[in-house]
């Protein structure tokens, strides 16, 4: 028996189109990145990657990412917990507010931070008087990166925690478990895969963020240049191989992230089977 819409011509047509489009728009650019990066041989690629400024950019990017992830993790878990386990006025509004960083263009986010915390900004003026500089320094980059990435963990957790309900937690509390014990032994094991998945997405975005960071960083080579900003500068300087070497690094991080995500999904599927 044949299912509806399963005629051989239709099937082949759809699969063919999907493969062709994926190759054209996804696979080919990826291949091009690596081809360009290695266009003048491994030696030149390595020279570019081990360049002083490139290393500084890599270091700053990793530093920002390492700081961003724990903040987003704690924020996401707390928010998901609040939204799914308690009922209070404004709960729906809060759920909508979580999505603001997704809805707002990152450049706009960067500008708002500049407006607020810049030297002439509302809060920035006061901070400047205290001799604290946030904008055009790593704290500013960290702030906008957190802003842009903070919804990922919460967004992963909320549907899951809603679906699971609080029965297991209720059972644990009737058995005399304290709040901390319940979180550690009941809640966390139930959400750990979603949590890890949220962290992977947060990581991917934090590493690759360009728009918001470019507004607040000032792009000082060796000081406030993240890898994506550094890449763009190299490209503007007609250093194509250098730009693509950095791009290859970013692409590698992305590929690694995707592999980790696929691995998690495979594990999750196997656990359910």
């Amino acid at each position: 028996m044949q299912r509806i819409g399963d005629a051989p011509a239709v099937r082949r047509g759809l699969i063919g189109a999907a493969v062709a489009l994926s190759a054209l728009f996804l696979l080919l650019p990826l291949v091009a990145i690596f081809a360009q990066a290695f266009a003048q041989g491994v030696g030149v690629f390595w020279a570019n990657v081990s360049d002083h400024y490139t290393l500084a950019a890599i270091g700053l990017t990793l530093f920002i990412t390492v700081l961003t992830i724990p903040v987003c993790l704690v924020f996401g878990v707390a928010l998901a917990w609040l939204v799914t386990r308690f009922s209070f006025p404004g709960r729906r509004l809060l759920q909508t507010l979580i999505d603001i960083p997704f809805a707002v263009s990152p450049v706009v986010a960067g500008l708002i931070y500049l407006l607020l915390y810049g030297r002439n900004g509302w809060i920035g003026g006061w901070l400047d008087a205290q001799d604290i500089q946030l904008m055009f320094a790593w704290p500013g980059i960290l702030m906008v990166t957190i802003f842009v990435t903070c919804p990922f963990v919460a967004r992963e957790l909320i549907p899951l925690m809603q679906a699971q309900g609080s029965r297991e937690e209720e059972a644990a509390v009737t058995l005399g478990a304290s709040g901390g014990t319940i979180f550690r032994r009941v809640t966390l094991p139930n959400i750990r895969w979603a949590l890890l998945y949220g962290v992977i997405l947060t990581n991917a975005r934090a590493v690759g963020e360009f728009g918001a960071v470019s507004v607040v960083s000032g792009a000082i080579r060796g000081q406030t240049n993240t890898l994506p900003l550094h890449l763009e500068q190299l490209y503007q300087d007609y250093n194509t191989v250098g730009a693509f070497a950095s791009a290859a690094l970013l692409a590698l991080i992305a590929l690694f992230t995707l592999a980790a995500k696929a691995g998690l999904e495979w594990r999750a599927a196997r656990r359910e089977a």
Binding site: R167, A171, T174
Partner: peptide
Amino acid sequence: HVRDRRIGFVFQHYALFKH
């Protein structure tokens, strides 16, 4: 608090710890 009431509670859908 529930925790200190020392009751046993059996839920309709068992609410066993899955993991």
